[in-house]
Design a binder for these strands. Structure first.
Lengths: 334, 334
DNA sequence: TTGTAGGCGTTATCAT
DNA sequence: ATGATAACGCCTACAA
């Protein structure tokens, strides 16, 4: 079987000490080229595979990245996770993924589980309920670096990789303005998320640029659940002068809102939607949102993994930015 | 930090030998109840966490299940993977997931990667290109059990957990027949998949029951890609007497087919579709398929994980069935 | 009922 | 340039 040959077996077959063989396989410069070649040749021939459990044990490293996300059903995260896994794999790491389903309690449990499993680091998208990140700070204190992605906590001393949703939202406003919309509503996400605050700022700044006064009546929140979104959009639609267009925190939210309007407000004047994410399913819709802000999910994932692996290799990393963001691109769907 | 206390530390604090502490923590019956309690109490107090890398090393077990699937973008697999992870976690296992993207080459590489990583077992959905499973047989020969799920190879000596698509397809035919359809087309998946053959059999048997002769002209294959599906549905739609309803290998395929017809054959007589999977996105469609066969993805995943863990614990398991299937349920969407 | 001792496969330090 | 040796943390015969 694959893993049957041990370092000791190779050393016996080559009349060398195990330590020499080990060093040869790991390209220690103190080992002569000839010895290295002989060792590697034999290793290849007998298909030697080092035992990763022994290496993890000895080196005190699991070569595992923990990934914590809201929900794999969200294609955004699915794609990001694929990006993470690819980067991880390319660097000899594996990933174990866990979903908190927007429940802080689960998030805390997952953090503990990851620590018990001795992951070398963590990539996290916090839940909508998360208000403090003590459970992750705790891991950092134990030497397990944490990189936040997509959804980061408000604290500004954390490492994170996100979409530039500030600019994305501003672009959405510009786009809608150019299409003639002057009354642009906004369904934000949970107030606890920095991504919500960023969108709000981009929205406010862009409106100001166009000389449109802010109107709090058309700025509402959803906690991302369908029910919450329905309440939010209903609040907008039932105004005396409802918005003619709505920017939604993400595509899924736009779809839930549009579905509600279609079912319950057939006669109303139409409202255009702009979401975030460019979900793959959009192409199958007869009536998609007007536009969506395509995000670079895979790049965000792989960049987060790279940032994390860099921190693992160099725990007191001072080089490189703690904060990376990827631009969104507006995509007109109809 | 969490993992700082070692067995030896506990033993020193308790004036016992490390082996006694180890046995106490693992509930060896030869250790007195009092000792066990004292040990566990201290362990709890100082938050002792055994080092899993040491345990894996010593016990020659990684407590890791490898999961190999086509693509996480398919909600079917996403949900199944969630089921796997839940079962695994509940039993002290973790899961590492890898996608082959329908590429046998990648599938073979993944198999090797999993073996190198010393997973304790594998849960696999083979690619559409996979014609032999030597690479997985090889792992079995090395003592790594494999359980196939959803898509299993044709060989009948393998462990597997699937949907009962034979019955599901027959139900679809019955349903369409009851709705008055007499010319029912079928877009199958790749011929290499057992799931394709099962559907074909269910289709044939049900048609016979209703006294409808088989017509090879309305029985076509898709390799699951959009292009292939377009060719398949075009073949059906361009017949002199096209089918009035089509059973599709899965929802995604039905959607691709419907999209093609909508775009390129607006004037044609309508064709109803029945797919498999009950994708969550279906609710957002203005024109969904007529019906879908809901599958028990999560149960399939967790059952596969349980079957695998049972095999890991008892390598020459003779009890229990090698083959489990879960019924589909037909769901009318409009 | 508890303790002693050896070993899992690899790496790393120190000696040769 | 290579080798001997100890050590990582835990488990488990075997001895006491």
């Amino acid at each position: 079987m694959a893993g049957s040959y041990k370092l000791k077996d190779l050393s016996r077959m080559l009349n060398m000490s195990p330590s020499t063989v080990s060093k040869a396989l790991n390209d220690y410069p103190t080992i002569s080229q000839m010895t290295r070649d002989r060792v590697k040749e034999l290793a290849r021939r007998v298909n030697y595979t080092p035992d990763p459990t022994a290496i993890s044990f000895k080196r005190k490293k699991s070569f595992t990245l923990g990934v914590v996300i809201p929900n794999l059903l969200d294609h955004f995260y699915t794609i990001a996770v694929s990006g993470i896994e690819e980067s991880a794999m390319a660097n000899g790491y594996k990933a174990i993924v866990s979903q908190h389903y927007e429940d802080v309690g689960r998030e805390v449990e997952i953090a503990e589980m990851m620590a018990r499993n001795r992951v070398d680091g963590l990539i996290v998208s916090i839940s909508r309920e998360t208000t403090d990140i003590l459970h992750f700070r705790q891991l950092e204190a134990e030497g397990i670096p944490v990189v936040y992605f997509v959804r980061r906590p408000g604290e500004d001393d954390v490492f994170h990789v996100t979409s530039n949703v500030y600019k994305g939202t501003a672009d959405a406003v510009d786009f809608l303005h150019a299409r003639g919309h002057r009354r642009i509503g906004h369904i934000l996400g949970p107030a606890s998320l920095q991504a919500t605050r960023d969108r709000q700022q981009g929205y406010a700044d862009a409106l100001r640029t166009h000389g449109i006064p802010l109107d709090d009546n058309i700025l509402v929140h959803s906690n991302l659940s369908e029910e919450s979104t329905v309440i939010a959009v209903e609040q907008l639609a039932s105004l005396d002068t409802p918005p003619t267009a709505i920017i939604a925190f993400k595509d899924q939210l736009a779809l839930d809102a549009m579905l509600h309007l279609k079912r319950n407000r057939r006669g109303d004047p139409p409202i255009e939607f702009v979401g975030f994410g460019n979900l793959p399913l959009l192409k199958y819709l007869d009536n998609p949102p007007l536009a969506t802000l395509e995000e670079q999910c895979a790049s965000i994932g792989s960049r987060a993994a790279e940032m994390l692996m860099a921190r693992i290799s160099d725990p007191d990393m001072r080089t490189g930015n703690r904060s990376v963001s990827f631009d969104c691109r507006i995509l007109v769907l109809k």
